[in-house]
Amino acid sequence: MYVAVKGGEKAIDAAHAWLAEERRGDVTVPELSVAQIREQMALAVNRVMAEGSLYDPDLAALAIKQARGDLIEAIFLIRAYRTTLPRFGYSNPVDTEKMACDRRISATFKDAPGGQVLGPTFDYTHRLLDFKLAADGEVPEAPTRETQTGPVPHITDFLNQEGLIQTEPTSDEAPRDLTREPLELPADRALRLQSLTRGDEGFILGMAYSTQRGYARNHAFVGELRIGTCAVEMDIPELGFAVEIGEIELTECETVNQFAGSKTEPPQFTRGYGLVFGQTERKAISMALVDRALRWQEMGEDNLGAAAQDAEFVLYHADNIQATGFLEHIKLPHYVDFQSELELVRKMRADAQAQTMPEAAE
């Protein structure tokens, strides 16, 4: 056994060395720096920060480099590092109404108060390969940014002036922290939103798409999508007031959904909500759709049996790190387990043959 273990260690060390060599690639090609990844692969960096639950563009870029571009592996690295950090307090809830918006659009109101700001988006590109990028040409200078500063009211609030959209309940109770406590069901909305924020973008997108195809009563409009920076404040007991400790980039989405009413509520619109680190609008929209689908019970709606309405199914399968760990563990040695399965199948075959032999003799 000792020889086998030592041999295994040597093989693992060799695998790590080979991995490092593959990560570097052709040494005649300049190596990617962390700063280059942070600045030029920002959307990948944003996803790693969001699903890794740690806002640090430099560390996310480092994780992407270390993982050779495998974003789930990078998310795993960030989460593992996050567990080593001390927790010395909690920040106050960010006020997204004070967001300095680089992008703010609405699919429900053409003349949105404050105007629509397209910002940096792929929405209007032709999806044709730009071979100028392969030539490493100069980047064209962008026009002056239209960042909106000062209070920017949420567009859905204007529906509320007529009482046409459901008022969201508020609570002073601090929500449970999913990064420090395991997920338990039933989960309230705050916990569900945390889980969806950390969830795999592809999984949440698939769940959201299913709701649009009829697997939940969820006909939604994007009431508002905004991307920008928000101040993060923290109460300092020694000072007796809150101080700003930094800024973070966020994507926020509010969907507007039709609601036929219930025994206690009149017909009105309801909301779905998504809030994610960085420019991550596909994830934020998907999150809002799934959030609304999961609210069927509090809305007094029927459960149509759709996967997106099943909180246990969605929340327990959204986490890509848990899914990856469970999936990939089957490639590790299972020699003993397989030998027992092998012996069982041999015995079953022998029993089956023994039962058919008398019939063959007749």
Rank of each mutant, 00 (worst) to 15 (best):
L289T: 03
L289A: 10
L289E: 07
V290G: 03
V290I: 08
V290L: 03
D291R: 08
D291A: 05
R292A: 11
R292G: 08
A293T: 01
A293I: 00
L294S: 05
L294T: 05
L294V: 07
R295Y: 09
R295N: 12
R295M: 15
R295A: 15
R295D: 12
W296N: 03
W296P: 05
W296T: 04
Q297D: 10
Q297H: 10
Q297S: 10
Q297T: 06
E298L: 11
E298Y: 07
E298G: 09
E298K: 12
M299S: 07
M299E: 06
M299W: 07
G300A: 04
G300K: 00
E301V: 04
E301F: 06
E301Y: 03
D302Y: 00
D302N: 05
D302M: 01
D302T: 03
N303L: 04
N303I: 01
N303T: 01
L304V: 00
L304T: 01
L304G: 02
L304W: 00
G305W: 01
G305Q: 05
G305M: 04
A306E: 09
A306D: 11
A306L: 10
A307Y: 10
A307E: 06
A308K: 02
Q309M: 06
Q309W: 05
D310M: 03
D310F: 04
D310L: 05
D310K: 03
A311F: 04
A311K: 04
A311S: 10
A311G: 04
A311R: 04
E312T: 05
E312I: 02
E312S: 09
E312P: 03
F313P: 01
F313S: 01
F313G: 04
V314L: 10
V314G: 08
V314Y: 08
V314P: 09
V314N: 08
L315V: 05
Y316K: 10
H317G: 08
H317N: 14
H317V: 05
H317E: 11
A318G: 14
D319K: 12
N320E: 15
I321G: 05
I321F: 04
I321N: 03
Q322P: 08
A323P: 07
A323G: 10
A323S: 13
T324Y: 15
G325R: 13
G325L: 15
G325W: 12
G325F: 15
F326C: 09
L327Q: 14
L327E: 15
E328S: 13
E328F: 14
E328M: 14
E328N: 14
E328I: 11
H329D: 12
H329Q: 13
H329W: 10
I330E: 09
I330P: 01
K331M: 11
K331T: 12
L332P: 00
P333V: 07
P333G: 05
H334E: 02
H334G: 01
Y335W: 13
Y335K: 14
V336C: 09
V336L: 15
